[in-house]
Amino acid sequence: MPPQQAVAALPARASSNLRLGLLVPAVAAVVALALLPVFTSGYVVYVANVLLVYVVLSLGLNLVIGEAGQFSLSHAAFYGIGIYAAALGNKLLGLPLVGCLLLAGVVAALLGGVIGTIALRMRDIYLALTTFAFGEAMQWLFLNWEPVTGGPNGLRIPPSSLFGVEILNDKQAYPVVLGVALLMLGATVVISRSRLGRAFRAVRESDVAAMAMGIPVRRVKIMAFLLSAFYAGVAGGLFATFSTYIHPESLGFQTTMTVLTMVVVGGLGSTGGALLGAVVFGLISELLRQAPAVQEMTYGLILILFMMFVPRGLAPAVSRWVRGRGHV
């Protein structure tokens, strides 16, 4: 192959003609997903709800780490803030479901903005460490602020209501969870293609050059942080709609790592990858839930092996495969 063609054949990360080819299967998938509760048991719907929460978490983490290249390790903390905000909005203020979800997202985003502003005074490494420490501190707060969070005993969540109808089980919650997750997915695609999305990637690739293009680098980084926290908060709000109980044990670094693994397995910087990673890895982690040691080893091995052999994750490989099939 002459050099010119070799270059032209190398695809960049974003590809628009691929999206059209995926439209039909995507619509089919949405219809199938919408009909899921009709055909399956409560447990399957519960797992589907959990996976959809993971999808929203992954989309958010991918925005900040994958798109903007800023290492944030406090995703579980924002998720937790979302859960508590939604639960308390429901319990104390009697907010309807939509209000709870918004409250969850906004509270998490505000905190994310504050932490981001402080942590972004320094380079990436410090950001990782500060957000890690922030995550630990928040888990401590969840465990110890008993009047609000119920402390280690956890918090009972009253059923939330949508248009006056109480949501009492997984099947009732599912349409809401699915709808919001799809909405977030759509928003992610729009953001990623927008001016802001380009600014995120510019900052990731070279902050010096981004500045020279007139991009306010610090503000863009904080924006990525804030948006990602909003996603995590909404994911927390979704979790609160189908759960009756919150336990702070599950809001630590382990959860951040689970989501990080999903994004890495799917492919950092790719929306489709975050989606794929959340579903594939969410199933694995659900399967291994009873064996924590095996679960930890699996996470560790997957992260190491992917970094060694598939550093860009599954998404590019899958899109190559789809493209390849299209040519036949």
Partner: peptide, 23 residues
């Protein structure tokens, strides 16, 4: 050698931490 971004190296060490604890 695979990609070499700092993020990838950090993730590899995170992977090691989980692997060791699980072991």
């Amino acid at each position: 050698k695979a990609l070499g971004e700092p993020v990838n190296l950090v993730i590899a060490t995170l992977g090691l931490s989980f692997l060791l604890r699980g072991l």
